[in-house]
């Protein structure tokens, strides 16, 4: 698998279909690796312990200045690429994906190809069972217990914004927490600011999150951010049939609407 990945990456550079390859290095922690010479492709590595979603780099100015770019993309990262394209954040033809799934190299895809691959082979990607069970367990608790659970978790947040940096969907040049006229979200790493921040981060990803898990993996304090993401993912699917990351021309769930949307909770 690694051999095919490396060969393909080198070929993209040789054929000038990509000027920059972003992949993973082999050394401990599997940091992101940036390659522009075909011979360096030997250093590429992939296995399931590579936790970063490399699509997050696509909005970095230093990276987009070096397009066309190819990224080593897990299935979730492929979906991110499709979401970014749908949101006009990845110029078509400028980004390629070296698609990987667990221990298989799936080939090189442009965005349309990635979407087609996902639709045909992986049509119902969603949260893992264990994650949904965590959501289920939490939902069964009383509101007071749920509040207590999150009070304890959010209290750990230092507001380092590693979650935001890790997320391909968090590409705003000025995040809501950095807007100060008015200051909607308190920037102090204290109770209510931490609550607002974490709620708004999750909410801004609703219907867009591809469940890659990079935010939770990046959190130095180990906050269970994916519980929020998974709950919203299921709700968006059940209510609006949303499957973000399958259609490069799809409309975002929030930002579109249907007259048929359920509103039984409205009075």
């Amino acid at each position: 698998m690694m051999k095919a990945l490396r060969q393909e990456a080198a070929k993209l550079l040789q054929e000038k279909r990509a000027a920059l390859i972003i992949g993973f290095a082999e050394r401990e922690g599997h940091p992101a690796l940036f390659i522009s010479k075909p011979e360096d492709c030997e250093r590429l590595f992939y296995d399931v312990s590579c936790r970063q979603n490399l699509a997050a780099y696509l909005s970095k100015p230093e990276v987009s200045a070096r397009r066309p770019v190819a990224i080593v993309a897990s299935l979730a990262a492929l979906r991110s690429l499709v979401v970014l394209t749908a949101e006009s954040q990845a110029a078509p033809g400028q980004v390629l994906a070296l698609a990987v799934d667990k221990d298989a190299f799936l080939g090189t895809f442009d965005v349309a190809g990635a979407a087609e691959l996902l639709r045909s082979k992986y049509p119902d990607l969603g949260p893992e069972k264990a994650l949904l069970e965590r959501v289920g367990e939490l939902s069964k608790k009383s509101v007071v217990e749920r509040a207590a659970f999150w009070a304890e978790e959010f209290a750990k947040c230092t507001r380092c914004y590693a979650c935001r940096a890790a997320c391909p969907g968090c590409y705003c040049a000025r995040c809501i927490v950095e807007k100060n006229a008015p200051q909607w979200v308190s920037t102090a790493a204290l109770g209510h600011g931490n609550y607002s921040w974490n709620i708004m981060r999750a909410f801004h990803q609703s219907g867009r999150c591809t469940l890659c898990g990079a935010c939770e993996a990046a959190c130095p304090q180990g906050l269970p951010l994916m519980v929020l993401n998974a709950a919203l993912d299921r709700e968006a699917l059940e209510e609006f049939g949303a499957r973000p990351g399958y259609d490069p021309e799809g409309k975002p769930v929030i930002g579109s609407w249907s007259a048929e949307d359920d509103h039984s909770y409205m009075r």
């Binding site: 992101a32 997050a56 970095k60 230093e62 380092c160 914004y161 935001r164 940096a165 990046a218 130095p220």
Partner: peptide, 24 residues
């Protein structure tokens, strides 16, 4: 190139001491 611009390193660092002043 790899740096994504979060504050995880600075906040975990025992020496980093940069701060902001904010009114609430």
């Amino acid at each position: 190139l790899a740096c994504l611009g979060c504050g995880a390193c600075a906040y975990a660092c025992p020496v980093c001491h940069c701060f902001d002043l904010q009114d609430e």
